[in-house]
């Protein structure tokens, strides 16, 4: 099974990377862009298991390692 975890900087936390990308887009003439947030995507491969068990496991991985919940939010979707 594949799980795609998306980790984003929390609202209100400085995101200098996003701001710099926004400035570059403006330089290229894309003035209509009003905000950019930069985050990361992690793709996990796991053996087949029940949905509830999988979600519990992935949530634990996110809380313990994949995200730092002081500064980041995460969400994940389960694929095939």
């Amino acid at each position: 099974m594949k799980v795609r975890v998306t980790v984003m900087v929390k609202k209100g936390v400085l995101d200098p990377q996003g701001k710099t990308i926004l400035a570059s887009l403006h330089l290229l003439g894309y003035k209509e862009v009003t905000d950019v947030k930069a985050g990361k995507i992690l793709e996990l491969s796991l053996p087949k298991m029940g949905k509830a068990q999988l979600e519990k496991k992935v949530k634990e991985m996110c809380d313990r390692l994949l995200a730092n919940t002081v500064i980041e939010d995460y969400e994940f979707e389960v694929g095939e």
């Binding site: 936390v13 400085l14 200098p16 990377q17 730092n68 002081v70 500064i71």
Partner: peptide
């Protein structure tokens, strides 16, 4: 990161 101190260190504002 270990929770022995509060807060976090993030990317410098200038990158």
């Amino acid at each position: 990161e270990a929770g022995l101190l509060p807060g976090a260190l993030i990317r410098n504002r200038t990158l």
